[in-house]
Write a protein that binds this DNA or RNA. Sequence first.
RNA 1: UCCUCAGUAGCUCAGCGGUAGAGCGGUCGGCUGUUAACCGAUUAGUCGCAGGUUCGAAUCCUGCCUGAGGAGCCA
Length: 459
Amino acid sequence: MTENRRIAEILRNGKPEESVKIQGWVRTKRELKGFAFMEVNDGSYLANLQVVLEPKLPNYEQLLKHLNVGASVEVTGVLAESQGKGQQIEMKASLVKIYGEANPETYPLQKKRHSFEFLRTIGHLRSRTNTLGAVFRVRNACSSAIHQFFRERGFLWIHTPIITTSDCEGAGELFTVTSLDPTASNQQDYSQDFFGSPAYLTVSGQLEAEAMAMAFRDVYTFGPTFRAENSNTSRHLAEFWMVEPEMAFCDLGGDMDLAEAFLKYVFSFVLETCPEDMEFFNKRMDQSVLATADNIINNEFERISYTDAIALLEKTNRKFQYPVEWGLDLQSEHERYLSQDYFQKPVIVTDYPTGIKAFYMRLNDDAKTVAAMDVLAPKIGEIIGGAQREERLDVLERRMHEAGMPADDLWWYLDLRRYGTVPHAGFGLGFERLVQFMTGMDNIRDVIPFPRTPLNAEF
RNA sequence: UCCUCAGUAGCUCAGCGGUAGAGCGGUCGGCUGUUAACCGAUUAGUCGCAGGUUCGAAUCCUGCCUGAGGAGCCA
C-alpha cells in the first residue's frame, strides 16, 4: 500500500523517487499539447502540490475533461524533482481517481482573485481559497497557542454556560432564548417558558469564571459569546469567541503582565507554526504584519493611565472630532492615535473614571477611578478589556446600587465576597480580533468561518 | 441605529439621456514544462426592486432592498 500523505508534509519532507498517494481538491489545471499540470491542495499548506499528468495515464483524455477546478481527487504516483521553476518537488501521477467533479460553468471559484465581499456570499466554498485557507490555519494555531499558554501556567479551562438568566452583566443587548411558540398568546408569560424566567445567550462568562477562580485560583474560558447589538463594522460580530482568564490573588498589575505575556506567546507560537501563511499575509494583505508581530514579541507594551492619556491627547496638535476631557470615554480616533500614531505599538490604558466602566471593577483609593485596563492595538483598537474585580462586599453593593443593578439576581456573585473573598483580576479577549490583528485581515467577517452579523446568518 | 459611497455578463469594472461594453472566467482550437501559463476564436446581461419625469432611462427624481467604509456600542 502506498502511503497516504498530507501535502504539507510532502512539500516539507518529500524526496524524489518516493511513492505517494494524496487526496485533495484541484486548484488549477494547465493543459499543454503533450501533457498537463494540475495543482492539488488539501488544506494542510498554503502552496499546492503540482501533479504532472502524462498521456500514458489510463483514460488520459477523459480524465483531463473532468479534472476541473474544484474537483476532489486521489492521486497515486511518484515524487520527482521539478524541472520547472516555482517548486522544488512535484508528483508524477500514475493513477488518478476523481471522487467528485465540479462543473466549471457553475463552480463559483475561478482561477483569479475574488473580492472578500463575493467570497462571503459563498461561505461554504471560500475556505478553498489561499487567503481564507491561511486565515483558518492561523486561527487554529492561535487556538492551540491559547490552550498551551494557559496549560503551561496551571490554568484550568472551564466551560461556562451559553444560556444565562442574568441580563445584567453589561448594557449590551442580548438574544432571548425561549421555547415558547412566538405566535402563542402566552408568549410573554415567562413562568410558562422552559427555564421559568427570561433566558438569554451569554454576553460573557466572566461572572461564572470568577466563581470558578474562587476554587481553582487560575482559570480561563474560551467559548462563544453573543451580542445582539446592531453593529455594522469591520470589527464586530453577533457571535464571536472570547477568551477570559480569571486569576485569584491577583491585582491589576498581574492582570496586565498576563495580557502582555499572553499576546507575546500567541504571536511567537503562530510565527513558528505557520511561517508560510504569515509571510503570505505580509506580502498580500498588509506589509506590516511581520513587523507588527516582531514588535509585539520583542518590545514591552506601553502602559499609561487614563489620566495621563487624556493629558497627552490634550497636548497634541492633532485635531479630534470628539472632545478630549477627563471623565469622557476615549473615542476610536483617540485610541487609534495612541496606539497607531503616538506609541506605534500596543498600549495598555489603565485606571479609568468610575462613571464609564462596569460596576464590578475595583474602586481605586482616589474613589474617582477603577482598576480597569484596556489593551489597544494598532488598526483594530480595543483587543483586550480587563480589570481587577471589586472583592469588598460593601463597596460592591454600593456600586451595584449606584448603577441601578438589582442585587437579587446576583446574590450568588455577592456570596463570593461573603465567603472567602480574595483580590482577583481577569480580562476578556476577542478571539477574532486577535486573529484579525495577527493576519492583517481588514474585516472580522473574514477571520471566522461562518460569520453572524445583522441580517446575515447564512451557512 | 446614524453618515457616506456602491449595486451593469459567473467575477472585477467602464458606460452617466438615444434601447449595452472591456478584462478575467467558461467553451472550442493551437502550443513538449507550465505555474494568475500563453496565442486565436467564441459564449455571456429583466443594467438590485418598485414607482415617477421624458418622445426615449442603465443614465435624472422618489421610496425600498442589499453590500461596503466610517461612527456609536464593545471584544
